[in-house]
């Protein structure tokens, strides 16, 4: 934390990272302050399928609900889903990756094989099946996504750990009698924060894609607004192929999904550039 200021300054140095950071901030603020920005869309409205106007910035859907409000409340859902998914992925993935990277041997091999197996699983069909079986509350969806996200995080953590634990300062720490716990969770963790953070931002991004996908297939939580749910409703009501096309209905949620994914990716790349150890002169 000592270099928080300089870290922030470094973050500001790359324009693309700033764009990513602003994007993430916009979404986070939208999510947190959704009730203050727009009323939660429910019931019916009288103005059906209106194009964007000053009254309804993003237009209205076939029930007369404001699409801007839906998108804002969708941000809240997307954030919730990706945060829970990331939390699940961190809790499983980081320790698994660090242990399998540090303890070469039977334990390491077992965890490594498990990561491999999970990485080869057909994720989307499995998510669909599990979501169908355990029911599609928004929390369930988030946890399912998290459970399928940890292998990539574990793999990244493992590779980074492998690389760091070969370095001499780890051997030096052992030689100085530093306990294994300190070695793993201080000496190694400090050095692999970069790849982990970057992977977390990627999981944030893909979690939203997965959620949108599941919702679109009807396996999301129908009682909550999410960008996938909006898209699904648009699709069900023929908004994508109808002429004249109510483009605003499918366009805005799609834009926000893309915006969300790109913002987190840009931020991740920026963090990666900064946190990667400086090359030795």
């Amino acid at each position: 934390m000592h270099e928080k200021k300089s870290f922030f300054q470094l973050l500001m140095r790359s324009r693309l990272t700033v764009v990513g950071l602003i994007g993430v901030l916009i979404i986070v603020l939208m999510g947190i302050f959704a009730p203050f920005i727009a009323e939660k869309p429910k019931g019916y409205g009288s103005e059906i399928l209106l194009p964007p106007s000053t009254n309804h910035w993003f237009g209205t859907d076939n029930l007369g609900l404001d699409i801007f409000a839906e998108v804002v409340w969708g941000a809240r859902t997307s954030l919730f889903v990706s945060l829970v998914a990331v939390l699940v992925a961190i809790v499983i993935g980081v320790p698994a990756g660090m242990i399998s990277g540090y303890k070469k041997g039977v334990i390491g091999s077992i965890i490594d094989s498990l990561i491999d197996i999970f990485l080869t699983l057909p994720i989307l069909p499995l998510m669909i099946v599990i979501a169908a079986v355990i029911g599609s509350s928004i929390l369930n969806v988030a946890v399912i996504i998290g459970i399928f996200s940890w292998p990539s995080l574990a793999r990244v953590t493992r590779n980074a750990t492998l690389k760091i634990s070969e370095l001499q300062f780890i051997e030096a720490a052992k030689c100085l009698g530093i306990p294994t716990g300190n070695i793993i969770f201080k000496h190694i963790l400090l050095n692999i924060m970069g790849p982990i953070l970057v992977n977390i931002t990627l999981i944030m991004a893909t979690a939203v894609l997965s959620e949108a996908g599941l919702s679109f297939l009807g396996l999301g939580d129908p009682t909550t607004w999410s960008w996938g749910v909006i898209l699904k409703k648009a699709w069900e009501n023929g908004a994508v192929i109808d002429t004249p096309n109510p483009w605003w209905w499918w366009f805005w949620p799609s834009v926000f999904v893309t915006f969300y994914v790109i913002s987190f990716n840009l931020l991740g790349t920026g963090i990666n550039d900064i946190l990667n150890p400086k090359p030795n002169d």
């Binding site: 001499q168 030096a172 000496h187 050095n191």
Partner: peptide, 12 residues
């Protein structure tokens, strides 16, 4: 150790 560049943790 041999390598003075590798035997200190760069983050500490």
């Amino acid at each position: 150790f041999q390598d003075p560049y590798a035997s200190l943790n760069p983050r500490i």
